[in-house]
């Protein structure tokens, strides 16, 4: 415990001695962590929007004209047993026509002698299964069931929407990864510079019998300090930005976790990166 205090004191006095480079490092890491948080929130908002847009999305199963009631009943219960099906609702042709009249207006459909629309079953899928592959596969399977004339679903629309969402997720993950690598690079290089600035002091410590870890620990403590303080600043910056944006007609951001949790996560993530960056730096330096 006493040794930890000694190393922390050593790190603190070293930090105080190199204010310029330390402030520059903290500023750079703060910006990096802030951008990582913004990327995470943007992705979370996008995912939530896609989920919202596809909530009412379903598959419509058109029935054959000659399908009797027993066939329809059997088909409906079979569809309900399908994985990912939240609801299967029978829509008689008369109800479909009524619905069409509501949408298009009575006048347009006035000339029709008979109802051309078939009976149908509207399937609503559970949210977790709303992806293009699953919808396509379900539709293909249902189409083979007895009494089914055709199955329709917004294949292209769903595919495009999920495709865009997937690309954004990939791009966001890549950005987050690149920023993380950048932060590690900055941290590692700063620790190396600080190390080389103190070569004379380190040589003296070695001559007095200091072990490698005795020399390394203050540098690792400095790395953790950089990470934690940058995390704290980034979380303050983020909270201020969110407060500012929510005061106007801003986009309703969807946070992946609560604002408090995201602050804690930013500080912790900063600390972990600080430890990792400094460990990489001191590990590469020959003592």
């Amino acid at each position: 415990m006493m040794e930890i205090r000694f190393h922390i004191n050593t790190a603190a006095s070293n930090i105080a001695r190199n204010k310029g480079i330390n402030l520059l490092t903290i500023f750079s890491i703060t910006v990096g962590l802030f951008l990582i948080a913004v990327t995470a929130i943007t992705l979370s908002t996008l995912k939530s929007a896609v989920r919202e847009w596809t909530r009412g999305f379903g598959v419509v199963v058109y029935l054959k004209d000659n399908a009797d009631q027993a066939t329809v009943k059997s088909l409906k219960s079979r569809i309900e047993r399908e994985a990912g099906v939240k609801e299967a609702r029978f829509v008689p042709r008369s109800a479909a026509m009524a619905s069409l009249k509501t949408v298009l207006g009575e006048d347009i459909l006035e000339g029709l002698d008979e109802n051309p629309l078939p009976d149908s079953i509207e399937i609503t899928l559970t949210e977790d299964r709303l992806n293009a592959e699953f919808v396509r596969e379900t539709a293909r399977r249902v189409k083979t069931y007895p009494g089914v004339e055709d199955v329709q679903f917004g294949e292209q629309w769903v595919g495009a929407l999920f495709g865009v969402a997937r690309h954004f997720t990939l791009a966001g993950t890549a950005v987050g990864f690149a920023l993380t690598i950048g932060i590690l690079f900055i941290l590692s290089n700063t620790i190396k510079i600080l190390f080389y600035r103190r070569t004379n002091e380190i040589d003296i410590l070695k001559l007095l019998g200091a072990t490698r870890w005795f020399i390394r620990i203050p540098f690792m403590a400095e790395g953790i300090f950089f990470g934690l303080s940058s995390g704290l600043l980034a979380s303050m910056l983020l909270q201020a930005s969110l407060a500012w944006m929510s005061s106007g007609n801003a986009i309703p951001f969807v946070m992946p976790v609560t604002p408090f949790a995201i602050s804690i996560l930013l500080v912790l993530f900063g600390g972990i990166l600080g430890l990792a960056g400094s460990t990489i730096a001191v590990g590469r330096i020959r003592l």
């Binding site: 006493m2 000694f6 001559l207 007095l208 019998g209």
Partner: peptide
């Protein structure tokens, strides 16, 4: 000499003991 010039006389002398893990008190 090889003294640490940012540290006091006391801290320079104490350093040998801290390196050996002897607590401050």
């Amino acid at each position: 000499f090889k003294l640490l010039h940012e540290r006091t006389v006391r801290e320079n002398v104490e350093l040998s003991l801290r390196i050996q893990g002897i607590p401050h008190h």
